[in-house]
Write a protein that binds this DNA or RNA. Structure first.
Ligand code: ZN
Ligand code: ZN
Length: 915
DNA sequence: AGTTCACTAGTGACCGCT
DNA sequence: AAGCGGTCACTAGTGAAC
């Protein structure tokens, strides 16, 4: 009891023994008794409250105690099933004058906060918490929570319904206090009490923790809190929770609030914030969580368990604490060692567009308890310790993952089904056909063991689905045909029906589309599947088609490629048999594209699914030639891929749109039967997204922003507004590895030639047809540019240009217009278009190549979104791009004579003549 | 004014998948 | 094994109806 202690002894008022409620959950209505003692030198009033007033009877719930007086209080759980580890009890005491007689009244009136004393009492589960050893962050072991948590209902039990036989007729909720005022009649048990504060500090078994709370008025009226004031409920819960970390072990020392906590305005958020921020919530002993701020690592270890000799991984993992909140960590999540909750929190919130607001003072301390109180500071902490939002899977990756899982499930189910059928068939020969492996059996007699090249070996010897041996095990009696029903079954509670499974339907539809496409393809190309169908083995064919559709679901890009190559090979063989054969080696070394290649025309090179119907812009007479061309292309890229794999061991997917090697191969050799994007495609899309990431950044200042903010925008303002986008487009281009492959002259020519077209495309995405105006995220939404701005422009061409623009808007499907990524890809297709001033042959070659790459990527991306319908979008593109050319070609004079040259940014003046 | 109900949002433990 | 997202039980907040 050092004199230096900032805490006055007068604050210690009451003690409870024991400090835990050890409910025996084996009984129907568990009950506990604790003894309260006045350990102050004055008469005190006390009350005992819980955060779950509907589940406990507390008898009595409040009263007075004279100096040193002890008094037993019975706490009954209405039902053992109602126990929850998060139930909390708080014993509050305050100095009461000798005249205070009515305990209800006492707590109803304002109280001298500086004399308020709170003791937290923790419920334990008798079954699981015999030992005082507790987990770092919870007083109740996880098993206890599962053992006692009620299933399927959140309905609170009314005290009047509970019946509580053990409550001896006086049981009440804290609010409805009984009229028993005999507290002062109890005798004092000297043997269990200690009179001094210092001994209290030592006698950890008596007082779990003590804190002087500077609380809101609502907090003072905790009786009402439990049942009435919502706001106070929050405060109450927070106060309760704040105390939580101190309860880690029964040996917790007495902890009090620093004096600074007493000053703030009562009830203001800052008082809570101060408590959160400065309170000694982390006692710094045992395994109690402590933030590891200041350390330049992404993980930290608890001091207590560092040297316990546990050498296994489990032991090591146990040592981890969350870098964000100090709770027990499970491992690395998004680049940082965090707990599960921070992981989930980050995943849910890191990408949210809107910022949280800190209800306190923007400097909340984040620990395992306070982390819930302020999302903003928690998220900031997440970022500050190095969590990476980029590591959260994006849309495509998620879709892919989901599809993959569904496919796998369906695949396995199919395998089970077919094997079940095989068993019923007397004809054993069916077995091999019904196995997914049979897909790989070439109709040309090629067997599994004689693939066209070594390149094919791995996937063939390890097919994606289970082989016969493992498939048999699926027929065990425990195997249920319902075993792959969706995991989101109905739940017992009313909340259970409120699911969020809305997207699953889409996935199923996609799956169906994939299968349809696969079977269509098989028919049109005479694949093994179609032959099977022709043979009347529909089921086997269906399985084969499905398996084909499922290929590429693996995240493994190597397998992706290889699996498709097999089919390609089959298809190629088929094509070769019907059209005049081309030497398989003819395309080996040529990467320049076939002679038929037409730059700047959007035509996905791998238009496989319907080769005769899908040739946009080509007349039927060209179809035959086209098939041949396709054959060349496919064979070439297949062989290139195979050779590359042989040389490199595994595909270097980081090169996709990255260092300029192996782009098209990676993309086009992906899963052409499946609409799912492969890794290379996903990566390429990420690169695109990344390149465009700066386009929408808000504008802080500058002439451009001023122009945007004007209500009446002159042509000069319009030009200045365009300057923003132009500059950002240049930046965007410079982020593209593909762009950087070009010579400086090439770069310049592309930007010069494509700028207006890109601007126009961009303009379309920002164009709101309803209001006939442009809106942009770079400035607040109320600042728009009306389409009528055309009216101020050069009368010679403004109308025709306006019409062209509107035509262009109409030419693009609305769905497409709203798809940021698709628009970005279109802009890249536009950027990588041949321009007059590109003279270098290597530049021209690269431009063609990237144009094809991005065209393919766009198509694949649309396919992944819309399946077969992607064609619909694709079909509108040539016309749209044509319009774009025209718009660009006639735009040079659009601003002529309407702009004050000296006020206009120089960059737009490169593209629009002003005088 | 207080209570109940339906609904929504957020949290965190746990799980399966890759 | 690690690390990801999905799931679900649960808590808490809101607003309408009574
Ligand atoms: Zn955490
Ligand atoms: Zn905060």
């Amino acid at each position: 009891m050092a004199a230096a202690s900032p805490f006055s002894q007068k604050n210690y008022l009451i003690a409870a023994k024991p400090n835990t409620l050890d409910f025996n959950l084996n009984t129907a209505t568990p009950s506990c008794t604790i003894v309260l003692q006045n350990i102050s030198k004055q008469r005190i009033a006390w009350r005992l409250q819980t955060n779950s007033p509907t589940r406990y009877f507390i008898s009595p719930s409040c009263g007075f105690l004279t100096v040193n007086e002890c008094f037993p209080v019975t706490i009954s759980l209405v039902s053992s099933k109602r126990f929850h580890e998060r139930h909390r009890f708080m014993l509050t005491a305050a100095v009461a004058g000798e005249m205070s007689k009515n305990r209800k009244e006492f707590w109803a009136h304002p109280i001298d906060f500086s004399h308020l004393h709170c003791v937290r009492i923790t419920p334990l589960c008798a079954e699981t918490c015999k030992s005082p050893v507790v987990s770092p962050s919870s007083v109740v072991s996880p098993t206890a929570s599962t053992a006692v948590s009620p299933s399927g209902t959140t309905t609170a039990v009314s005290p009047t319904m509970g019946g509580a036989p053990s409550s001896d007729g006086r049981a009440t909720s804290p609010k409805a206090s009984a009229e028993n005022t005999k507290a002062s009649a109890e005798s004092v048990d000297q043997s269990t009490t200690t009179g001094s504060t210092s001994s209290r500090l030592d006698t950890s078994g008596i007082v779990n923790e003590i804190r002087v709370l500077v609380a809101a008025k609502e907090e003072m009226e905790l009786d009402k809190v439990a049942a009435t004031s919502r706001q106070a409920k929050i405060q109450y819960a927070k106060v309760m929770e704040m105390l939580h970390p101190q309860m880690n072990t029964p040996e917790d020392p007495v902890i009090h609030s620093p004096p600074s906590l007493r000053a703030p305005v009562l009830g203001s958020p800052t008082s809570i914030a101060a408590a959160l921020h400065n309170s000694p919530l982390n006692p710094g002993y045992g395994q109690s969580p402590i933030g590891c701020d200041g350390e330049n690592r992404t993980s930290c270890e608890s001091p207590g368990s560092a040297g316990d000799g546990a050498t296994d991984a489990e032991g090591r993992r146990r040592q981890k604490t969350c870098r964000v909140c100090g709770d027990h960590a499970t491992g690395y999540n998004f680049n940082v060692i965090t707990c599960e909750s921070c992981k989930a929190f980050f995943r849910r919130n890191a990408l949210r567009p809107k910022e949280f607001k800190c209800p306190y003072s923007e400097d909340c301390d984040i620990n395992s308890v306070s982390r819930r109180f302020c999302q903003k500071c928690r998220l900031r902490k997440c970022f500050s310790v190095g969590m990476k939002k980029e590591w959260i899977l994006n849309e495509e990756q998620l879709r892919r993952r989901k599809n993959s899982r569904l496919n796998n499930m369906q695949n396995q189910q199919r395998v089970r089904d077919h094997h079940r059928q095989d068993f019923q068939m007397p004809d054993g020969s069916m077995k091999s056909l019904s196995s997914p492996v049979s897909v790989l059996t070439s109709p040309t007699g090629m067997t599994l063991h004689s693939p066209p090249s070594r390149h094919m070996m791995p996937p063939i010897v390890s097919p994606p689905s289970v082989g016969p041996s493992s498939a048999f095990s699926l027929l065990s009696p425990t195997d249920s045909s319902n075993s792959d029903s969706p995991p989101g079954q109905n739940r017992g509670g009313p909340l259970g029906a409120l699911g969020h499974h809305g997207s699953e339907g889409y996935d199923s539809a996609l799956l169906l589309q994939q299968r349809l496409a696969a079977s269509r393809l098989s028919q049109s190309l005479g694949s093994p599947q179609s032959m099977l169908q022709a043979a009347g083995l529909q089921q086997a064919a269906a399985a084969a088609a499905a398996a084909a559709a499922n290929r590429g679901v693996s995240i493994d890009p190597l397998r992706n490629r290889v699996m498709m190559s097999i089919d390609d090979y089959h298809n190629l063989m088929q094509m070769a048999a019907t059209s005049s054969a081309v030497s398989p080696l003819s395309g080996l070394n040529g990467d320049q594209g076939s002679p038929d290649y037409k730059p700047n025309v959007f035509s996905p090179p791998m238009n496989l699914s319907s080769p005769l119907n899908g040739m946009n812009g080509l007349d039927l007479g060209a179809a035959q030639q086209s098939v041949k061309h396709e054959f060349d292309e496919k064979l070439k890229s297949y062989l290139d891929g195979a050779i590359n794999d042989e040389l490199n061991g595994s595909p270097d997917l980081t090169a996709v749109f990255g260092n300029g090697t192996r782009k098209e191969e990676d993309i086009t050799q992906g899963d052409r039967l499946s609409y799912q994007l492969n890794t290379a495609e996903l990566r390429a899309l990420d690169n695109v997204r990344e390149a465009f990431s700066g386009m929408d950044e808000p504008l802080d200042s500058g002439r451009q922003r001023d122009s945007f903010m004007k209500t009446e925008k002159s042509p000069t303002d319009i030009m200045n507004i365009m300057d923003i986008t132009m500059r950002r487009l240049v930046k965007m281009a410079k982020k593209l590895p593909a762009f950087n492959e070009l010579s400086n002259e090439g770069k310049f020519a592309l930007l010069k030639g494509g700028m207006v077209e890109m601007l126009t495309v961009r303009g379309v995405t920002r164009f709101d047809s309803a209001s006939n105006s442009w809106k942009t995220p770079v400035v607040p939404s109320q600042y728009t540019v009306p389409v009528s701005m055309f009216d101020q422009l050069n009368t010679d061409c403004k109308d025709i240009q306006k019409n062209r623009f509107m035509q262009f808007v109409g030419a693009l499907n609305e769905e497409l217009r709203k798809n940021e990524l698709a628009i970005s890809l279109i802009m890249l297709i536009v950027l990588f278009s041949q321009r007059e001033n590109v003279n270098s042959p290597s530049d021209r070659m690269l431009i063609d190549k990237h144009n094809r790459d991005y065209s393919t990527l766009l198509f694949r991306y649309l396919e992944s979104l819309y399946g077969e319908d992607a064609r619909k979008f694709q079909e509108v593109l040539p016309r749209a791009l044509g319009l774009l050319h025209v718009i660009s070609d006639h735009s040079i004079t659009l601003f002529m004579g309407t702009v004050k040259t000296e006020e206009a940014e120089p960059l737009p003046r490169e593209f629009f003549k002003t005088d």
